[in-house]
């Protein structure tokens, strides 16, 4: 527990924020870098996923990509790209993008796919244009799942951005790796706690956004059990 005291002292010490470690800058770096990757993944993955979910084509590809990406070791990807592209932000950016894309794609695809086809058909039948079907029916109903995809991508990215310091000396991983070299366990622990807190804050933000989207998609929410019972009731009728 001594170590934790040391770690917390280090975090609270103004010198850590102004001195060699520049914690403020590290946090911003970490967040900005993660946000950039996530934005790129969203710009590429969401339209592609929606197109796949909407048309039903390319489904196998999404499944293969997501299960393949899970098996791919992050550190291996980082280091091989680091060797290929050299020191700098390009390698980690690319590696993180490769990791963030599958969950975003899968979320967008699964979200649109999960929207009841009968509802979509009904909207079309009463005169929604294709764009209105997408914007007023499919997207709001799919939003919780789409945001869920972004959420897992964000976790993945924040986590891997820590590891990225191993090859690019950026973000909150930087003090962690420095301290690893100098054997300052208190500093390592402090940096780790900061990263964990950062991840938790991001997770909670996404949780709130996702709940808000779910409330819009399913304004009248029941507990899973009751929804399940209701679904059964319906099929029995």
């Amino acid at each position: 527990m001594n170590l934790f005291l040391e770690a917390i002292q280090w975090i609270l010490d103004p010198a850590s924020w102004t001195g060699e470690h520049q914690l403020g800058a590290r946090v911003l770096e970490h967040l900005a870098f993660s946000a950039a990757v996530l934005l790129a993944a969203a710009l590429l993955g969401i339209p592609a996923g929606i197109a796949i979910g909407h048309s039903g084509r390319g489904r196998g590809l999404v499944i293969a990509l997501t299960s393949g990406a899970r098996a791919l070791p992050t550190l291996g990807l980082l280091t091989i790209l680091g060797l290929g592209l050299g020191i700098g932000l390009e390698a980690p950016f690319l590696a993180l993008l490769v990791l963030a894309l599958p969950p975003v794609l899968a979320g967008a695809y699964a979200g649109v796919e999960s929207v009841d086809r009968a509802t979509v058909g009904a909207a079309r039948a009463i005169g929604f244009t294709e764009w209105q079907v997408l914007a007023c029916v499919e997207l709001p109903l799919a939003a919780p799942v789409i945001i869920g995809g972004l959420r897992s991508a964000a976790l993945q990215v924040i986590s891997t951005a820590t590891l990225a310091a191993y090859i690019a000396d950026t973000g909150l991983g930087r003090p962690l790796f420095r301290a690893l070299k100098t054997q300052e366990y208190g500093v390592m622990l402090g940096a780790s706690i900061l990263v964990a807190l950062l991840a938790l804050v991001v997770e909670l933000c996404f949780h709130a956004i996702q709940s808000a989207a779910a409330r819009r998609a399913e304004p009248h929410r029941t507990t899973p059990r009751r929804a399940h019972a209701r679904a059964r009731e319906r099929t029995h009728r």
Binding site: A122, A123, G127, F128, T129, A217, E218
Partner: peptide, 22 residues
């Protein structure tokens, strides 16, 4: 087609209502 559909009332089995609208 869109104008046509808006000018015709269509009722489906189980309503076909939009679940996220009042």
């Amino acid at each position: 087609p869109v104008r046509l559909r808006r000018s015709i009332g269509y009722v489906l089995q189980a309503g076909g209502l939009l679940p996220h609208r009042t």
